[in-house]
């Protein structure tokens, strides 16, 4: 039987690989939409690759999270690095969902407007960057080092909000989504 540790490696490689491809495609799509020489013709391809890779990475992410929790030593999440991994992957998950929802609701026209195409490119790239940062923390946790160590990021600090503030943020976010949905239907 495949152990959680092995499955976690497979799942994280699928997730990180997809997000890395998505990040690159979002950059190229952004450049193409800004009229960078000889890239305009490929905008549609970059757009499809970026969003498909992002969607595939999102599908693989829950498996990576479940297998990661199963394979982590000890009971539950009892290390600052694991908490930061959880937060960063959650932020990436939310941002990636937002990017895909925006693309779904507005279609390829999202690359036509100056601000929307910049936000779409940035959103996709930041979601990918957050996943790469999460993978970097995974390397620090399991092997004690990662490629991003030269940044000296404060992985040991956990920015934890009180429960009431998290609840407030959730309520605000849900209301926001409902308001946007109603406005778009109007």
């Amino acid at each position: 039987m495949v152990s959680s540790g092995t499955l976690h490696v497979v799942a994280t490689e699928m997730t990180v690989g997809s997000f890395a491809m998505a990040g690159t495609a979002f950059l190229l799509a952004g450049l193409a939409s800004h009229g960078v020489t000889r890239l305009e013709a490929y905008l549609k391809h970059f757009d499809h690759i970026a969003h498909f890779a992002l969607a595939f990475g999102l599908l693989a992410m829950p498996l990576a999270i479940f297998s990661g929790i199963q394979s982590s030593p000890g009971d539950g999440i009892d290390h600052p690095l694991l908490i930061n991994k959880l937060f960063l992957s959650s932020a990436s998950l939310g941002l990636a969902l937002g990017v895909l929802l925006a693309r779904r609701s507005r279609g390829v026209a999202i690359w036509e407007h100056t601000m929307s195409k910049r936000w779409q490119m940035l959103g996709g790239m930041v979601a990918s960057g957050l996943i790469l940062l999460t993978a970097s923390i995974g390397g620090t946790f399991s092997r004690g080092e990662s490629l991003l160590d030269f940044f000296h990021l404060p992985y040991d600090m956990v920015p934890l909000m009180p429960m009431w503030l998290s609840l407030l943020v959730i309520i605000g976010a849900v209301l926001n989504l409902v308001a946007v949905r109603r406005s778009s239907n109007a």
């Binding site: 990436s92 939310g94 909000m161 998290s166 926001n176």
Partner: peptide, 29 residues
Amino acid sequence: IDENVAYLQSLALILVMMAGFVALQYRND
């Protein structure tokens, strides 16, 4: 750490990032 607080904050991050980005793009719509 209180794991419930961490999981709730994680959910909050998912929703706020999604809602924030959708709202941002909707503003440009």
